[in-house]
Amino acid sequence: MSQEEEFVNLIQQNQGLLYKIASIYTRIPEEQQDLFQEIVYQTWKSFGSYKKAAKPSTWLYRVGMNTAISHLNRSKKRITAVSLEGWESLRLEEYDAGLEERVQLLYAEIRKLGLLDRGIVFLFLEDKNYEEIAEIVGITASNVGTRLSRIKEKLRKGVKNN
């Protein structure tokens, strides 16, 4: 299999993961598309290190999150280069207006968090345990626990105030 085919397979198999990273870090669909494209580009650029990675399962999480952090840190509002067909923000499978509103409210609060905390929330939602989160993010497992407690409290207060 050529490197190009391997890359396409990796993206296609993990397309959902990249959509979710784009959605948790950015709000409007244009920004999400832009970030999605940036992650695809960075994945291609770093693809040489994919096979050498000690844990390929965590590699894409790391590349995706680092790209989002880097992208938002530059904080330049740019217009997306290519419009992806059928792009829509994350929605619940069975539409429930009340629930959808509460989900969006929590989303809005998550997007107010710092870049690292946003990534920790994302990995928590992805059902990663503290050790896995620690390995991807680069902090200790006990630090993950402490940070998550603080984040939950912050989100609770934020949602309450809305």
Binding site: A53, R62, N66, G138
Partner: peptide, 9 residues
């Protein structure tokens, strides 16, 4: 992007 952890970044 692939070698550094998000914390380091």
């Amino acid at each position: 992007i692939s070698e550094n952890s998000p914390m380091e970044l």
